[in-house]
Structures are given as C-alpha cells and as structure tokens.
Write a protein that binds this DNA or RNA. Structure first.
Lengths: 130, 130
DNA sequence: CTATAATATCGTTATGTAGTGATATAGTCA
DNA sequence: TGACTATATCACTACATAACGATATTATAG
C-alpha cells in the first residue's frame, strides 16, 4: 500500500467506504449463503425496497457483489468470498478493542456508537433551516 | 460476523468508515515506519495542521492509533500493525478488480473515481442555498 | 394491449464530515 | 513574566449520502 498514488488510494478508500454502512454489511452477510433478489433482501433485512435497491447498486458499483437479471427479478451474489475473511479479521480486531472481556458475538449492547437516527422527522417545511 | 447485533455491526461499520478517507490512509501509511508528531504529518502529507490534527484525533478515537504527549508535541503511532495486513489485503483486492492488466503500484491514473473536490469555493454568501 | 409485479430512480430532508482560516490552549525557554 | 512553539478546537462552507415516499421503468402473464 505504500506505493499507491492518489487515484489508487481513492479506490482503496472507496472500498472501505462501501463497507462502512451497517445495512450494507447486513446485505453482505445475507449473501453469505447464496444469491438473493431485491425482494428477499427487503424482507430479510426489514428495510424499504428503495433502500435495498440503492445499497445493492452501491455494493455492485464497488465491485463487492454481482447482479444477475432474471425476468423482473434482480439476483445479487458475492463476487469474491474473500470479503468475509476481511470482515472476520475486522470483527476480531474490533471485538478485541472494545470489551476485552466481552465476547464479540455476545451482547455489548450498552455502548451503541451513534445509533444512526432515522432521518426525516418533519414532513415538509420547505427549507427552514435558519 | 454472522452473529453480530446492531450495535456491534455499527462498530464494525465505524471501523471501515475510519479507513474510508484517503488522507487517513496516508496517515496510517506514514506511521508504518514509526511514530510521528502532528507537524511531521503536516509536512509529509502536505496538508493543513488543523486537518492533520483532526484526522489524527479521529484515527485515535477509532482505536487505530495511539497518542503520546511529549512536551508540546503529540506523537502518534499505530496501535496494531495487523492493520497493514488488512490494507494490503484490500489493496490486492482492489488492484485485481480495476485493471486486471495493470499492476497496483503502477499508475492507473486515468480513472480517478470522484477526485474529492477541494470544498469551499465562494468565500461567504450567508446561506443562499435556494 | 392491459394489468401486474419487481426493480430502479427521483425529489426530498436531515445529517455527517472534509477542508479552511482563525483562535484558544498548553508547554518551553529566555 | 512574556515570547514562542506545537497542538487542539471553533465556526464555517461545500458537499455527500442514508432513508423516505412516490413514481418511472421493465418484464411477464393474460
């Protein structure tokens, strides 16, 4: 990594950015056991169809997953299972760091770091933001 | 990673987020050969002191680096060198993907993905944003 | 062609954040 | 003590983007 020029570094950063959203990690996780279409992801992860579609597109654009169209359905699958090695590496690392005494798959549910609030609260006020 | 609850997933995502900014990758890279103080980072990476300080703080907050105060200087160092294994893994992955024919440390400078524009263009217009 | 179903996309809002210049804070030395 | 140095922090702007609801697009079935 030492010898990377700026565009290359941007690609590496973009890769990490693709993995930096919980819902996308959940999607990758769901694809562990095989390909899924958008509807299945929407159901399994209990998110909106629009959101699932968007994040799947982002993951595909980042080269993490691949799309296969079949009729009106779009099936997505992991492009390279080595991604999971990476995830597990990070999980181990993170697990070590926070809660040296708490197992990673246990529940360290006390210290949620900024729970990603749900956005959109006021219905429509047309730019009030004073 | 399969068994992670939401707070844990957020931590993993936060880890990836910390690595998702080119300047921060450069900082980690600069720390490969040993600890550096803020001034050295500022000089080596040709960035502003404020920016260097901020990103160092972010990396420290994410647990990727550690701070050691010495007089007026603040020295930062890598907390766990295994980070670099991870970086190299990703670099290899990214390198494979874009430009199967171009070496990673070579120059694939043609396809810069969103060059991260410099922000701040107009000096001050006081909320015009119509 | 029409209806239906599955996805993708659009317009919106709220929020996060990288970078900047200016300033505050703290340690060192005369 | 005051000047100097190193770092941290502040206020700000520009921009990116996650989530939403609504709509457009596309393919299949009848």
């Amino acid at each position: 990594m030492e010898k990377l020029n700026d565009p290359a570094l941007e690609h590496v950063a973009a890769f990490f950015r693709a993995m930096s959203v919980p819902l996308r990690l959940k999607i990758l996780n769901a694809l562990r056991t095989g390909e899924r279409n958008v509807g299945q992801i929407t159901t399994e992860l209990a998110c909106s169809q629009a959101n699932a579609s968007k994040h799947l597109a982002i993951l595909a654009g980042s080269g993490l997953i691949e799309k296969r169209q079949s009729g009106t359905s779009a099936y997505y699958r992991i492009r390279d299972p080595r991604i999971y090695e990476l995830c597990d590496l990070v999980c181990g690392h993170v697990g070590e760091r926070l809660g040296r005494d708490i197992a990673l798959h246990g529940m360290f549910a006390q210290a949620a770091p900024a729970p990603r609030r749900p956005a959109r609260k006021a219905p429509a006020v047309k730019r009030k933001r004073a």
